[in-house]
Design a protein around this nucleic acid. Structure first.
Length: 422
RNA sequence: GGAGAGAUGGCAGAGUGGCUGAACGCGCACGCUUGGAAAGCGUGUUUACAGAAAUGUAACGGGGGUUCGAAUCCCCCUCUCUCCGCCA
């Protein structure tokens, strides 16, 4: 959520900045600006009434002490009128405040000046590429066929037991999955992240805290009886640990990592993109989260991208780093890098990580602040990134490393899997 | 699921109707002191809105009520803790 103070101070800049999202927010922002002005006006009026009431109340108290019953009772009469006025003003103030809050929730983050212009994924900027695309034999298969051939993953069993998008992993497939999780967590630990194993279900406040609500209501699985949401990413519990927290400046930066399954309804997705492991309702992911000093967050974003890139290099996967254009960026982000791996049999790029700086957008909702040197409380910056999302890594590993007799496991994973080939 | 207790500032914890935006302590910041540090001493230390400022107003889990006046009394809700039951 944008800070209302920013809209007061630099309304035009915000409208201009939001144009990168290819939507004109001038009407909404102006609406917020005017609602805020109206709210302040009513608040002022309410304050004046309250000041008057307080003054009279004090006088009455004094009169009672002095034993002047009659004068006190006369003064009481005066307050009746004030009370009515106060009630009306209070109702107006509350409804304006609520309206303002609701409207603010609907405004996405302002893209950073570094964000490229553009509307669709085609407009994303390729920052760099790495690794080599393997030369596959004629007989190369997409991962869903490989999964079947070597009995690694059973998609139909998932359909039977749960539904589409909930696969079963077997034998070496399950081992490889678990190995990747451990590899990613160990790498994160070696890079200074504290490992956290959070709940996989969160309450509504947490959904609002990181911005999934109200924007993505329909994308999360909702347990209505308890009003809990299945997490779509570990970002939600990991970041919400710091909701309503006041940190000391020297607590920063905070670096946490966590493995969780992620649950996404993916309402509206269909077609060949969803084949095999490409898009699932439940998948595993290791996430890294940073809480940073505002002056360092962009520097940190680059180091996070470099970290994720290093993981892909260790896994010997061909990849590219994209700087997302304004039209393709998420609601809460100010700047996002996507990392994609090349899946050689499908002959396409698959997104395996998204690394974002949210600046104060989440912190404002979370009330995540730190006390700076002058004793002032300031909003911190939050950042996070996938490091990494498993299914598409699995898909690329299977496809890119296949030969006529099996599938090769990258060297770094062998200590985890206990086998070198499938 | 049953019974009881509680929710106050960054933390801990007083406060049962006006003198309490809130004692005392801890923490934190700055200053003094010191060769340096610790200790000690002093000052300061929530946020929002209005105002040039002085200052005013609001907020003591959330909502409603009583009252001229509520952190304090009443009602509802949420959450936490303890005991009992059930259970991995």
């Amino acid at each position: 959520m944008l800070e209302i103070a920013r809209i007061r101070e630099e309304k035009e800049n915000i409208i201009e900045g939001l144009k990168k999202r290819n939507t004109d927010f001038s009407e909404k922002i102006n609406g917020i600006y005017n609602t805020d002005a109206a709210w302040r006006e009513v608040k002022k009026e309410l304050d004046e009434i309250a000041a008057e009431s307080n003054k009279i109340a004090k006088e009455i108290g004094q009169l009672f002490k002095e034993g002047k019953q009659q004068e006190a009772n006369a003064a009481k009469e005066k307050t009746n009128l004030l009370k009515e006025k106060e009630k009306a003003a209070r109702e107006k103030e509350a409804s304006l405040a609520e309206d303002l809050q609701k409207r603010l929730y609907e405004i996405p983050n302002v893209p950073s000046s570094k964000v490229p212009n553009g509307k669709t994924p085609e407009d994303n900027e390729v920052a760099r590429t790495g690794g080599n695309v393997p030369a596959l034999p004629e007989t190369a298969m997409p991962h869903w066929d490989l999964a079947k051939k070597y009995n690694l993953i059973d998609f139909e069993m998932g359909v039977k037991v749960t539904g589409a998008g909930f696969p079963f992993y077997y034998g070496k497939g399950a081992r490889l999955q678990r190995s990747l999780i451990n590899f990613f967590l160990d790498q994160a630990r070696d890079n200074g992240y504290t490992e956290v194993l959070p709940p996989f279900v969160v309450n509504q406040d947490s959904g609002y805290g990181t911005g999934q609500l109200p924007d993505k209501e329909g994308q999360m699985y909702h347990c209505e009886v308890d009003d809990f949401y299945l997490i779509p990413t570990a970002e939600v519990p990991l970041t919400n640990m710091y909701r309503d927290v006041l940190l000391n400046e020297n607590d920063l930066p905070i670096k946490v990592t966590g493995y969780t399954p992620c649950f996404r309804r993916e309402a509206g997705s269909y077609g060949k993109d969803v084949r095999g492991l490409n898009r699932l309702h439940q998948f595993d992911k290791v996430e890294v989260v940073h809480i940073e000093h505002p002056s360092k967050s962009y520097e940190t974003l680059e180091t996070m991208v470099a970290y994720v890139e290093g993981l892909l290099q260790k896994l010997e996967l061909p990849y590219r780093v994209l700087k997302l254009c304004g039209g393709d960026m998420g609601f809460t982000s100010a700047l996002t890098y996507d990392l994609e791996v090349y899946s050689a049999a499908q002959k396409k790029w698959l997104e395996v990580s998204s690394v974002s700086n949210f600046e104060t957008f989440q912190a404002n909702r979370l009330k995540l602040r730190f006390r700076d040197k002058d004793g002032k409380n300031k909003l911190a910056h939050t950042l996070n990134g996938s490091a990494l999302a498993l299914p598409r890594i699995m898909a690329a590993l299977l496809e890119n490393n296949q030969d006529e007799t099996g599938i090769r496991i990258p060297k770094v994973l062998v200590p985890y899997t206990g086998f070198e080939r499938i």
